[in-house]
Design a protein around this nucleic acid. Structure first.
Lengths: 99, 99
DNA sequence: TTGAAATATGTCAAATTTGACATACATTTG
DNA sequence: CAAATGTATGTCAAATTTGACATATTTCAA
């Protein structure tokens, strides 16, 4: 069940940490990953590029790109960062998107 | 051979990208990793903690911590981020160290 | 609508990363 | 100087992540 659904059903889910009741450090990591996934999707869309196109650029697959943008736990921050850089984002921009 | 040695021998190595002649996106990724490794070592030392101690905190091993701080290519950004958070760094602090 | 393009989700063998260990090297302390 | 403590480096089986694929679902223009 997704957060959206929960909220639609009347739940109030403030943040991911509380939702999954993670330790503070696990929470910080997960939230950073979430920020990266959003940044990735935003940047890709802003460039009018499809998941298939991005996949080709990074020599991966559409499904993996989808998982990155969904912050799936089978995906590493490394791959997300590489993707952002492959989309032409500078270090400053990436840091800014996380800031 | 390390950069230090090269420089001691008279080479001028300006940055990692040039040194390893990486593509811009590979370079950005490697340099981010380098920044993380430095941040990790600095934070650990500032807390007067040994590699062994940090290893225990993150349920890893001294050798892996050493490799993180050396930005070894057998280590992921994920592990480095988890380590920074385990040392009590906030997201803001981590981002700041990268900025 | 309807069909095509884009995205999501599940699975899996192959590739990479992991903690653990041994051991070499470095630094500090007595 | 030792010896003790801390760090570096190499190796490996086990664990995780990977790209690829199939297929389901969503989005959107005709």
């Amino acid at each position: 069940m997704q957060r959206k659904n929960l909220e639609a059903n009347g739940w109030k889910v403030s943040d991911t940490a509380e939702f999954l009741n993670l330790s503070p450090e696990e929470a910080a990591y997960v939230e950073l990953k979430l920020a990266l996934s959003k940044a990735l999707q935003e940047l890709r869309k802003s460039k009018k590029i499809t998941q298939v196109d991005l996949a080709k650029r990074i020599k991966s697959s559409q499904s993996r790109v989808a998982k990155m943008e969904a912050a799936d736990n089978s995906v590493t921050v490394d791959l997300m960062l590489r993707s952002l850089f492959a989309l032409g984002a500078s270090r400053k921009k990436v840091v800014g998107m996380l800031g």
